[in-house]
Design a protein around this nucleic acid. Structure first.
Lengths: 209, 209
DNA sequence: AGCTAGTTTAAACACCCGTTTAAAATAGCG
DNA sequence: CGCTATTTTAAACGGGTGTTTAAACTAGCT
């Protein structure tokens, strides 16, 4: 395997586990059995490495999301909110075929990116992959037209937060749940439980302030 | 003001803004106009300073939450889920009287603690303030008895995630919302919008897997 | 084989980190 | 006041950080 890929593989596991700031280049390169200077040679800087790690997922995910969403939007029947969310979830789960534990690792990275490094990753994603968010809001708008754009803005960010936060602490939560309820669960099981929750949240009746 | 409090005040603003790992003692002490060694003199270590910052909020919050929850639980009428959540929210908003921007700063710190430093803060809070969580689950159990304990476990953690995550990125989101919708909002406005969302999520109908 | 372009390597760089030290300043009290 | 205990200070410590350098190595190609 190429040095570049060895670095990417080691980096995304470590980044997901310990955060971007919490992972040093020396940890990454020694995990990847690669010389320290290789990161700066192949990627230029640590920041560019972070971008590369995220882009590997986004380049796989973004077109699949786009086609899944446009499919249900162009269907003869108006989609339900559940369908919109599942359209989002399916490509997400497919990341496990693309890479081992791809789904949870990616979502953990997303969670890291929102809190680490003062929102630089949010900037990177919204400027590099703007279609993902706008397509999703379009689909929700079709499924639930009564929702004002502003209300939807907030509810989708709440949803984003729920998903990302849940996944970034999913390992710990799954551990607790297995101890307390003797119920075996994996990441897909957590997602199955979170879907009704976020769908109900987005579909909540409109209140006046 | 005492050196100890100057450090605490500077620390919680910086911790909330840049995370625990992302904030150095030198930033804190120079912001507080205090000598670098004062942190280790008064608190022993950076880790103990983090605990002290969180305890200042939790010692204020914990008893108020306890009384608010026990009040609605002992009322003659069974509380609704909305009431349970508002019982939680009111003491949270009161942190603004306790300290300027106390509410959002505290929630941001909570969010940091979940992702920074590999869950050490989660351990600290659940061992030092265990009643907060158990009282809340009791109240929800009364308001929505059909929910199994396991399902509730998950939904409450989703809720925790939604709140904490939203607050930890609330500044950025409020900025975006103000640009896009010309709608002035503060942290209380965001909370007013998130309540219907999480209440609907927790109250979502039970599905079989 | 010899040359070149691409890659890997060990070492060093300058800087920031949390913590410790020992001396200086301050406060409290008999 | 003089003594003691507490607090503040500047300086240094050892170690980790991302990045750069220049030399060594390794293909690939004529």
């Amino acid at each position: 395997m190429s040095t570049k890929n060895k670095i990417l593989d080691a980096a995304d596991v470590l980044f997901a586990d310990k955060g971007f700031n919490g992972t040093s280049l020396r940890e990454i390169t020694s995990q990847a059995n690669v010389n320290l200077a290789a990161v700066n040679y192949h990627f230029g800087s640590k920041k560019e490495l972070i971008k590369a790690v995220m882009s590997r997922y986004m380049d796989e995910l973004s077109p699949q999301l786009e086609s899944a969403l446009s499919l249900i939007c162009q269907a003869e029947q108006k989609p339900t909110l559940h369908e919109v969310f599942y359209a989002f979830i399916e490509p997400l789960l497919k990341l496990n075929e693309f890479k081992e534990n791809g789904t949870s690792t990616f979502l953990q990275l997303l969670g890291r990116g929102y809190t680490d490094s003062q929102g630089f990753l949010r900037w990177f994603l919204t400027t590099q992959y703007p279609d993902v968010f706008t397509n999703f809001t379009k689909a929700v708008k079709i499924a639930y037209p009564e929702l004002t754009t502003e209300e939807m803005f907030w509810r989708l960010h709440f949803t984003m937060g729920t998903i990302v936060f849940t996944m970034s602490s999913s390992e710990a939560l799954i551990d607790i749940a297995q101890n307390d309820f003797n119920n075996k669960l994996d990441i897909a099981g957590v997602i199955e439980r979170v879907i009704p929750y976020v769908a109900a949240g987005v579909a909540a009746p409109i209140t006046n302030y």
